Structure formats: C-alpha cells, structure tokens
Simulated assay, not measured.
Amino acid sequence: MLKDFEYLSIRYKDEKLEILDQRRLPDIEEWMESKTPEDMITYIKQLSVRGAPLIGVAASVALFVYVRDHPDADRKTIVEVSDQLRNARPTAVNLMNNIDTMIQLSQPDQDKRDYSAEKMAELAYSIVEAEVEMCRRMSEFGAELVQQGEGILTHCNTGGVATPGMGTALGVIRAAHRAGKQIHVYVDETRPLLQGGRLTTYELEREQIPYTLICDNMAATLMAAGKIQRVLVGADRIARNGDFANKIGTYSVAVLAKYHNIPFHGVAPWSTVDPACPSGKHIPIEQRAPQEVQGASGAFGSVRWAPKDSQTFNPAFDVTPNSLITSLILDTGVYDCQSFEKYVEQIKGNLS
C-alpha cells in the first residue's frame, strides 16, 4: 500500500512508521514507533520530531497509518483526527499545508473526497517525494550563490534531521561542500534547546564538512573579524511579503548581518510559504515551557541552573522582516522580497 522509505530521521518499513528521537542526539540514535496519531502528536510537541518539513511529512504519514488501521472510520472521524494532527504545533505551516492535502481540501465536493487507505497512502507518499525533491532543488539553487572558501553562519538545524532528503539551509551547505567550494561552517548552538550544538554538528560530522561550533552571542565578533561571508537559515512560515518565522535568535542574526553587510538568506520549500498570511505580524508564535530556559536537557541528562519558579519568556520562534533579507531560496528559484511577493501573487492568481 504505502511504499517503504527511509531517510535520516524518518522511515516507513514493514508497515511501521518510525522516527529518530532528536532529543537523544548526538550521542544516542534511538528510533521510536508511531502507532497512533496521539503518538505522533506527543513526538511533535516534545520535539522528538522537529523541523517544519519533517513535521508535515511525519503527520501526513501518521494520518495514513490511522486510516489503514481503522478501515471503518467515517469521514467525520478522519477529519477530526486530521485536525488534531494539524494543531500539534502552531507556527510550522508545512504541517497545515500537508494535512490539508491529505484531507483533500482542494476538492470542493466533499462527497468525492477519497479517504480510503489506498488514496491516503498515495497522498502521503507524494508528500514525502515532493519534500525530498524540493530539498534537492533549493539546495542546488542556493549552492550557486556560495563562493569558494566562504565562511557560512547557520542557526538551528535545517538538514536531514529536520527534513526528508538534503535539508534546507543545511542542504545548500551540503551541495556547496560536494561541489568542492571549501567552505567552513559556523554553527550557532541555538539556545534554549541547542539544535545547532546537538543536531547540526551531528550532521556536519557525518559528512565531514569543516565546522566550528559557537555560542549564539559570538556571531557578531566573528562577523567583525571577517570570518563570515554568508548567512543561511531555514524558515517555518514565510508570509506573503517575505517576512518569515524561524527559530528564536534568527532575527538577531539578521540584524547583525545587515550591519556587517553580509548576505542573509532564508531557505525553505514552497510548502513553507503561507500566501494567506500578509506579513510576519500575522504569524502565530508558539510559547514553550519555562523549563527549557531554566536549564538544559538532552542525551547527557537534565540540569536546572535557575530557580524553579523563575519567570521566563520562551517563544520558540521570532520573525525576520523582509528589509533584512537578501534573498529567499526556494525550490522554485532565488527571490528578493519584492520579486517573491510578485511570485506569490502570480501563483495565487493561477490557482484562483
């Protein structure tokens, strides 16, 4: 029914959906089975599954698994389950777009929507294949911008752990490295959850790409010293005007890059674009638990360094305004924000 597939962070084999527990990396590679929608929702919320493209893919396959295992489920129940998956995280629009594809919102006649296991398997696999191909194309587009010997700063994790396939910003880095451009990557640790320190370094080590891990507050010093020639980051939702939400701290990096005249690029597939969202002011920002700021946890265990009742501010994302963006690298090409907005309007016009 659903074809087997396997990528760095997600696989479907022998009718089992499994995800790599990102909380345990880099020291422990542990796969967890997702048998129910509730399993996948828990994995997404606890960040065992993270990265906007991967979240969308994982939820889509989880919805197929539910339909496969509940052949008598009626349309209403399937839609209710899809809504639960859709709401697992509020910012990553890939999740919403892919679930909408699974429940076939583009089909105006509800009675003709096909929620059979065979149809859901077809849709889920097409989503996986599309995300892999989009990663490949944006990686190639972005690698053409990278010059020989550049120092590249990246924030959070945007590779094969966060997507099926090459990755987004880290996919560009991979493609540039494979092209022999002798780049060096500077990796923000990315507080509070250390996705750069734990995950991006894990991926760079696997491919033997030269890198240096830094604390988030060291980027300005490196820029001033001329060590960084380009910034590549991912995105969880891109508004119609080119503003985009990404892991908290991205906005700070964009401000620093602007001051030091360093090109700053957001890299994402078309599934991350939200044409219905006019600007970054309209992007919902997820607020997370105070414990993530009060200490740290991972394969090494947990530690708390602040009083347990200390007041915290812990948004998962911030918004980078289009005025700070050199270009957006999509699977359809490279756009400054003015041309991006025109492109989105053109696509909307073609769909209407």
Rank of each mutant, 00 (worst) to 15 (best):
Q208A: 15
S60A: 13
G159P: 05
P284V: 09
T36G: 05
R230G: 06
A143V: 08
L232H: 03
Q182F: 05
G266C: 10
T272K: 11
G333E: 08
T212W: 07
E341N: 06
F313G: 07
Q294A: 15
I152N: 01
E144G: 08
Q195G: 02
G349P: 07
T158D: 08
S34N: 00
A124Q: 07
L20V: 10
A289M: 13
T212V: 09
A59W: 03
L204T: 07
S126C: 01
K45F: 04
P71L: 05
L351I: 14
F340Y: 14
T326D: 04
E133L: 14
A52G: 04
I152E: 06
V185S: 07
S116L: 02
H265D: 06
C156P: 03
E122M: 13
E205T: 14
M96W: 12
A73Y: 01
I41K: 02
L199A: 03
M40N: 03
G333S: 12
F264Q: 11
P26Y: 01
D27C: 13
M102T: 04
Y343K: 11
L232F: 13
Q104R: 07
G242N: 01
G333F: 09
Q208S: 11
D100E: 12
K119R: 11
D336H: 05
T77M: 09
L47V: 12
G249H: 01
R23Y: 04
E118D: 12
E30G: 04
N246A: 08
I214F: 06
D318A: 04
I55V: 10
A224R: 15
V255M: 11
A92Q: 07
N322K: 15
G142E: 07
T190N: 05
G333Q: 05
Y211S: 01
A124E: 01
Q291Y: 14
H282Q: 14
